[in-house]
Computed example of a mutant assay.
Amino acid sequence: MDMGGGGHGMGGMAMAPPPSPPGAHGGMRMRMRYTHMTFFWGKDSEILFSGWPGARGGMYALALVAVFALAFLLEFLGSRGLDVALLPSAAAGGGRRVAAGAARAVVHALRVGVAYLLMLALMSFNGGVFLAAVAGHAAGFLAFRAGLFGDRRAQVEDDGKEQLVCC
């Protein structure tokens, strides 16, 4: 019994042709992308978005500044001073407590979103991005947790241990 597949019992399904060699699609070249799985050094990298920062001059430096700012912002959002400022006073009514709780939830969601963006940027495995993130965390720690700027209440946790803010 012939099933339309040349008597091979394929049920009319034909085998797909082998893939065409690169450049055989009417002169269009398909760009092969390589994802690094180890740290590498260089400005030819894609960070967060396809084609960003690109090969134009200064865009890699702008990407490093953006990663630094994300890490700095993450330290600010996780600082104890910001959390204390959102706490309702003991005499506050129920409406103020709800508003303060909602504000804390928004700050937490923003902090988690920034942490995930920073993690995705680090997954580019670019050494410069890694160093920019570490420097941003260090600068943010100095600014908001070590008491360099603002009050010294944010310097140490109640139990004397540092709070770990992680992605």
Results as ranks from 00 to 15, higher is better:
residue 13 M to K: 13
residue 15 M to R: 15
residue 16 A to P: 04
residue 17 P to F: 11
residue 19 P to T: 12
residue 21 P to N: 09
residue 22 P to V: 12
residue 22 P to H: 13
residue 24 A to Y: 12
residue 24 A to S: 14
residue 26 G to T: 04
residue 26 G to Y: 00
residue 26 G to I: 03
residue 26 G to N: 03
residue 30 M to S: 07
residue 31 R to A: 07
residue 31 R to H: 05
residue 33 R to Q: 14
residue 33 R to D: 11
residue 34 Y to H: 11
residue 34 Y to K: 13
residue 35 T to V: 13
residue 35 T to M: 13
residue 36 H to A: 15
residue 36 H to M: 08
residue 36 H to V: 07
residue 36 H to Y: 11
residue 38 T to W: 11
residue 38 T to Q: 15
residue 38 T to P: 10
residue 39 F to Q: 12
residue 40 F to M: 11
residue 41 W to L: 10
residue 43 K to A: 09
residue 43 K to T: 07
residue 45 S to P: 00
residue 46 E to M: 06
residue 47 I to W: 07
residue 49 F to G: 04
residue 50 S to C: 08
residue 50 S to T: 09
residue 50 S to Y: 10
residue 51 G to N: 08
residue 52 W to V: 14
residue 53 P to Y: 13
residue 54 G to C: 08
residue 55 A to E: 08
residue 55 A to G: 09
residue 58 G to R: 11
residue 60 Y to M: 02
residue 61 A to L: 04
residue 62 L to C: 07
residue 62 L to V: 08
residue 64 L to A: 03
residue 65 V to P: 00
residue 66 A to I: 12
residue 66 A to R: 09
residue 67 V to C: 02
residue 67 V to R: 04
residue 68 F to R: 04
residue 69 A to G: 10
residue 70 L to Q: 04
residue 72 F to K: 01
residue 72 F to E: 04
residue 74 L to A: 09
residue 74 L to Q: 04
residue 75 E to V: 09
residue 75 E to N: 07
residue 75 E to G: 09
residue 76 F to C: 08
residue 79 S to H: 05
residue 80 R to Q: 08
residue 81 G to C: 06
residue 82 L to H: 03
residue 82 L to K: 09
residue 82 L to M: 15
residue 83 D to F: 10
residue 84 V to G: 01
residue 85 A to Y: 13
residue 85 A to M: 14
residue 86 L to A: 14
residue 87 L to E: 11
residue 87 L to D: 12
residue 88 P to F: 00
residue 88 P to M: 03
residue 88 P to G: 01
residue 90 A to H: 07
residue 90 A to G: 03
residue 91 A to F: 05
residue 91 A to H: 05
residue 91 A to Y: 04
residue 92 A to Y: 00
residue 92 A to Q: 08
residue 93 G to Q: 10
residue 93 G to E: 06
residue 94 G to F: 12
residue 95 G to N: 05
residue 96 R to V: 14
residue 96 R to F: 06
residue 97 R to Y: 05
residue 98 V to P: 01
residue 98 V to Q: 00
residue 99 A to I: 06
residue 101 G to E: 01
residue 102 A to M: 15
residue 103 A to V: 08
residue 103 A to Q: 07
residue 108 H to W: 14
residue 109 A to C: 03
residue 110 L to C: 13
residue 111 R to L: 01
residue 112 V to W: 07
residue 114 V to W: 00
residue 114 V to N: 04
residue 115 A to D: 01
residue 115 A to C: 10
residue 116 Y to A: 05
residue 116 Y to H: 15
residue 116 Y to W: 14
residue 118 L to N: 01
residue 120 L to I: 11
residue 120 L to P: 01
residue 121 A to W: 03
residue 122 L to A: 05
residue 122 L to Q: 04
residue 123 M to H: 12
residue 124 S to I: 06
residue 125 F to M: 11
residue 128 G to C: 09
residue 130 F to Y: 15
residue 131 L to K: 09
residue 131 L to W: 15
residue 132 A to W: 03
residue 135 A to D: 06
residue 137 H to N: 11
residue 137 H to R: 10
residue 139 A to W: 06
residue 140 G to P: 02
residue 140 G to R: 01
residue 140 G to W: 06
residue 141 F to Y: 15
residue 142 L to S: 02
residue 142 L to I: 07
residue 143 A to L: 00
residue 143 A to D: 07
residue 143 A to K: 04
residue 143 A to S: 06
residue 144 F to S: 05
residue 144 F to H: 03
residue 144 F to G: 02
residue 146 A to H: 05
residue 149 F to E: 05
residue 149 F to M: 13
residue 151 D to H: 10
residue 152 R to Q: 10
residue 156 V to C: 02
